[in-house]
Design a protein around this nucleic acid. Sequence first.
DNA 1: TTGTATGCGTTATCAG
DNA 2: CTGATAACGCATACAA
Lengths: 339, 339
Amino acid sequence: MATIKDIAQAAGVSLATVSRVINNGPKVGDKTRARIKEIMKEMGYRPNANARALVTQRNPSLGVVLAELADPFFATLAYGIEKVARQKDIQVLLSSGSIQVETELKAIETLLEHRCEAMIVHSKALDDETLIDFASQVPGFVLINRYIEQIADRCVWLDNYSGGATMARHLLSLGHKKFVMVSSHYQIDDPSERLRGIKDELKNAGIELPDSAIEYSTPDQEGGEIAMQNLLAKGHDFTAVLSYNDAMAAGAMSMLLDHGVEIPQQISVMGFDDVLLSRYCRPKLTTLRYPIEMMAVKAAEVALNRARTNGKNKSLEDTFKYTPTIVKRESVTHAADSK
Amino acid sequence: MATIKDIAQAAGVSLATVSRVINNGPKVGDKTRARIKEIMKEMGYRPNANARALVTQRNPSLGVVLAELADPFFATLAYGIEKVARQKDIQVLLSSGSIQVETELKAIETLLEHRCEAMIVHSKALDDETLIDFASQVPGFVLINRYIEQIADRCVWLDNYSGGATMARHLLSLGHKKFVMVSSHYQIDDPSERLRGIKDELKNAGIELPDSAIEYSTPDQEGGEIAMQNLLAKGHDFTAVLSYNDAMAAGAMSMLLDHGVEIPQQISVMGFDDVLLSRYCRPKLTTLRYPIEMMAVKAAEVALNRARTNGKNKSLEDTFKYTPTIVKRESVTHAADSK
DNA sequence: TTGTATGCGTTATCAG
DNA sequence: CTGATAACGCATACAA
């Protein structure tokens, strides 16, 4: 592949001159510039990004660490990030961490080796200390879906507690009094925060959500089915189902429908996330909107901006907390008379 | 960030020696090696991937160009690719082409600037010639979901024609005789190939699929709804709906259900792709399995292998054609008596 | 306006 | 077993 040297030779000028026209440098004669550009086309010249990164001491790339690309949730996240990167002419380096300590660590370290000037990482497995350490190493380091107080200005996150409370409040306002919940068995913050919000809100209304009314499983459709099956098997009496996310809600609905239950006439089901699926399934899911794409865009902007300003120039905002809001569709309605 | 030089200094050895222990070079004393490793830990040394790529003249990375990450189809594609890359310790550079000439071109060129040794591109906008030219420039260049005869050994693709024929054959075998189709209005090969397969197969059975029985729209749920609405408005008489993909099928089903049609008792609906959605929607979609993940894995393996062998070592297989197969679920059954 | 020289962090080719 | 030293492709301070 042609190098800057080849071009210089062919044009009968020095390396410096060619380099200047490549970077739109100011001090080059018009005719020289035109001629060199011509030659570059002819020879199919392409600047070597690695060499450039080496000499300029900065790699204008955005590293991204996600949990699981196959999950629509993360796909949307990646989509939002890639969109702003593309628009700013920044290449994205993508890795998957799959919520395992070694994998997440490995992914971040590889990104570090590439000297990405900005990074967005979704980490549930790594501890605060480790993350804080990474953050101190790269100015453009941003966490998504996680809040760590010491680096609050690099966290773009959702208030899961408030989300849980909102779910509970909505159902209470419709007269529901008997609840069950299908939740994720992963030991990460999100499920427990949502649950905490739910329990607190119910308690305010004088209602207890006993542990026996909560079934944990994998946070996907199948997990939702299994969890609901267990709940049904235990013979619980309830008029509303709180689900950790939309996928589990869809699974739970499937199971209920298979048992001849009418949704929402007999039982209401409420999801969380508002992914595509919530509009596809029948009945359409009433859920909480998790503004993933918006948050992804924000994370990318913050990361890139921090990278550019080397971490100085604290943005106007000091916190990037998002609050989920209710999306009313078809799966929730007034409480039926309790059985 | 500490460099190899700093390590050498701290250890009181030469650059060469440090470089050797980094690359597990053979000729280094055990104690020296241990000591250097120790120091590297202490100083938090990380090799600079850019410098390495520059001097070794190869960047062990996999560039990927997709159409639209937010689409579960492409998310799955990305997932499969990233999985094998991670397993082989290869960093993925991801871009989105959004089916536009300039964007796809830009994405590929940026990857070229990074000197990725392997590339997987999904391109519908670029013409054969352009793609063939790129392929000639990088040995690890592979196309996915596209077939170009001159570079057949770099194409991992689905036989859409056969898929269309299979759909038609299945429905015919269940006694259906009156069809409509909801298809994508994008001017790319896939829809037209599927349609060609369908028409040919129907023709064999003496059935014509008139243009008026085909509605084109965006290949998503909303497009499916619109297309079906138009078909309904035109007063077509049919017992089976052929859909370009699952999303449109789901939309079409929505619309039919809203009109009080029973699926599949009155009308059968058949999708294509077998994405997650086909299992979530109700009734569950009978569809054609598009082995995206398997194909993505294959593409990654071929690309990486070609890169490693510099395009020599033609693999045992000379073609990477995949054939979609039927997945029977709930949305298709025997033809009802025609109205 | 253009050219020369130096160095970015590594690997690799030589000698020792 | 270890150490100089020359690239790799490019940007840039300094000369001319």
